[in-house]
């Protein structure tokens, strides 16, 4: 790495002497797009969270009023923030372990090179290529109390998407079914990369399979494990489609995630409450930021 950088520097020196503005031309497309569609909206987004705005008229500065409303008042918007955030966190907490463990188990099983391994690998990866709305439509039929297989096969009378804790369970199952493919392949590649002689040495020492898994497999894939942990957590924080289409936020608002409230307030029927919604978005953003920073901190320490 070090030597490459110096090489690059040396190689490019002659070049820069001739034309110094040219490198910027290579950056220009990205920087222009980045500025207009990321940087400006980011700064603007933070600004409008301090204003009253309906997306049409000019934003009117109101100081900390939006934050006061959503954080400390007893208005509906405070309830929305607290419940939305709580539901989001709850979803992250229950779904992330499954989205890490299930693909890990699948990868370990596939790594044993069983029959039809390629077929299974393909099957488990497949759903991640479907759009969430198609996935939810197919699964709502499975959970449908009148036409679905669950109730009739097990002789139950359960309203899966309409009562807790089943509503969360359906959302988590759909999420696992939809998303684990990527993580599974990452683990598979990592498991493939563990040298065989590690295991042979352990065999000579008489280690059990469990001990081998614990002391050889897990430490060897730690890097990928942490990487998937961070990306999965961030992805689950942005949950929106599953509760919107499976449960419509119910029963009694218990699966309404913050993203749904932000969307409703800013782009719902009636006048847009873009200022308040922006403040909520900033709060959600800061939460994601903090959680991912904590995770990065552990990731860095472990390396």
């Amino acid at each position: 790495m070090d030597s490459t950088t110096t090489h690059v520097a040396a190689g490019a020196k002659a070049q820069t002497r001739r034309k110094s503005s040219k490198p910027y031309l290579y950056l220009l497309p990205h920087l222009v797009i980045f500025t207009i569609f990321f940087l400006v909206p980011l700064v603007f987004g933070i600004y409008v969270s301090f204003t009253k705005w309906d997306l049409v008229r000019t934003p009117r500065f109101v100081g900390l009023q939006n934050y006061q409303t959503i954080l400390f008042s007893n208005s509906t918007f405070h309830t929305q923030l607290v419940e939305g955030l709580r539901n989001t966190l709850w979803f992250v907490l229950i779904s992330v372990p499954f989205c890490i463990l299930v693909p890990l188990l699948l990868a370990v099983a596939l790594n044993a090179k069983p029959k039809f391994g390629k077929f299974f690998q393909g099957l488990f990866y497949l759903p991640s290529l479907f759009s969430i709305s198609a996935v939810v439509i197919v699964w709502t039929l499975i959970f449908n109390p009148n036409y679905g297989p669950l109730n009739s096969l097990f002789h139950l009378n359960q309203v899966w998407t309409g009562t807790q804790p089943w509503a969360w369970m359906t959302i988590v199952i759909v999420t696992i079914w939809w998303t684990i493919g990527g993580n599974m392949i990452i683990y598979q590649a990592a498991l493939n990369g563990i040298p065989k002689d590690y295991y042979e040495a352990a065999d000579i020492d008489g280690a059990s399979s469990w001990e081998k898994f614990l002391h050889i497999t897990l430490p060897s894939i730690r890097g990928q494990f942490l990487y998937t942990l961070v990306t999965t957590t961030i992805a689950q924080f942005n949950i929106y489609g599953q509760p919107l289409m499976m449960t419509n936020g119910g029963p009694n608002g218990s699966t309404s995630v913050l993203m749904m409230y932000i969307q409703q307030n800013a782009f719902g029927a009636g006048q847009s409450l873009a200022g308040l919604a922006s403040a909520m978005a900033v709060v959600l953003g800061v939460c994601i930021l903090i959680v991912s920073m904590i995770q990065f901190y552990f990731l860095r320490r472990d390396y």
């Binding site: 409008v48 942005n238 800013a266």
Partner: peptide
Amino acid sequence: MFPPVMNLIPLYKI
């Protein structure tokens, strides 16, 4: 580090 949700609303305006 800044999650995309923070610029969603202004991006729509742009």
